[in-house]
Design a protein around this nucleic acid. Structure first.
Lengths: 234, 234
DNA sequence: GAGTTGGGAGAGCACTGCTCTCGCTTGAGA
DNA sequence: TCTCAAGCGAGAGCAGTGCTCTCCCAACTC
């Protein structure tokens, strides 16, 4: 599909990328709320109205940045998963958690864009839900692999929660016990609670040894979804 | 200290409260980013510059709302703690969690103000850290009470994390084992991860039985900090 | 009662998102 | 090859924003 496109089309994708890059730059400095279309245009040497040829509104620009951010943290997680020891599920789990946290700490404003307060009046379009699920899917795949290899057993769920967990398991990881599925969804949210507290400054002046606390918590989460450390329990 | 103040002073506190109320109203409708000083003033029948007699800037108004929000969710948690069965630590824990979640779902924009992305360029002033810790302190007190009553034993921490946990325990709950303290801090962040995912729409189109998932996760968190259900393990 | 202070009104500045119109340039079809 | 619609940048303009400054009246203090 790398046909030689016309100059116009090529220019369009280049300008679009330049706008996103500059917007990301301003995002990193000032945060989403202060991201200004006019300032982006100014920095790019164009007039603000010209920018509307590429993004119909400020919200659309933000949506593009949101999708890119989801993809960035998602691929960071997937890269960590690919390089971790396939035979050590807890290590794979913590590797993904650590990678997600590292990306968040390196890109706090982009992280805030996707895991902070949703932009006012803004409804996440269908387009974002697929990239948004990549980290979660990485976590699920770890549990699914571990379950295929050794089986995972967790205490049974309550009557009220089991059907939901079964539905989710059927949808996302057929064969995975509902108990594991429920633990996965909860752990997924809890993981980002840990990251958000750190990125958003909730630990400021309270927790110092954040690396250690995070890896400790990530390991406990792995235990919570039933991933057992073979080195301890062979 | 309820001395009869002059008309001026009384008017000042009344107008200040009216401004905050109207701001909160607009916050609930549009969200923090669209909260406009001019709109608040307009709605109150005053001119925008007059509002600056009460709040030196938009950020100061937001800070006031933030403190109020922290106090609101904090007192909701404390109320839940006060009415729960004192002899049942896991029940006390889940009661506090459920109360915090209920407040968040009822006041999503105020919740976003305090647990979402920090307002751009905004540094939380010292004033906010005390009200911000009320929910956390409620959780800590549950574990401290349970530890005093029955003792809590958890697996030992790593060498790297123990000193930090000991420091935190000495500062916040003298006598509490560092293992419990570390679990508390992590659970505190994880709790708000669950709430944030729900409030910010991360569960949209994925998780339906949110009440059940949340109470399940809250119970697991209680277990994680070492609160044992006596009815199951007498 | 005189003087100080608090606070509302209004104009104004620099900025924002967004629209609309006016041209120039590009590229596809006749 | 020529034509003509589509793409796109420039500029002006609108309604809104946070914030400042000046003016002036009313309230409180001495």
């Amino acid at each position: 599909m790398t046909t030689i496109r016309g100059a116009r089309e090529r220019a369009r994708t280049e300008v679009t990328a330049a706008i996103k890059d500059e917007a990301r730059r301003q995002l990193a400095v000032e945060g989403a709320a202060k991201l200004s279309l006019r300032a982006v245009a100014r920095e790019l040497g164009m007039v603000s109205s010209a920018l509307y040829r590429y993004f119909p509104s400020r919200d659309e620009l933000l949506t593009a940045l949101i999708i890119d951010a989801y993809d960035a943290i998602g691929s960071a997680a997937e890269r960590a998963l690919a390089t971790a020891d396939p035979a050590d599920p807890p290590a794979r789990w913590t590797a993904v958690c650590v990678a997600a946290r590292a990306w968040a700490l390196a890109h706090p404003h982009e992280y805030a864009l996707i895991y902070g307060s949703p932009v006012p009046g803004y409804q996440a379009p269908q387009l974002t839900i697929e990239p948004a699920s990549r980290v979660g899917l990485a976590l699920i795949s770890i549990a699914a692999d571990a379950h295929r290899a050794d089986g995972i057993a967790l205490p049974p769920l309550s009557e009220e929660l089991r059907p939901e967990a079964q539905r989710l398991a059927a949808q996302l990881a057929p064969g995975l016990p509902p108990e594991v599925m429920a633990a996965l969804v909860a752990s997924w949210a809890q993981l980002f609670g840990l990251v958000s507290f750190e990125v958003f400054g909730q630990f400021n002046g309270l927790v110092e040894a954040r690396d250690e606390l995070f890896t400790h918590a990530a390991r406990r989460l792995a235990h919570e979804v039933g991933l057992l450390d073979r080195r301890r329990t062979p």
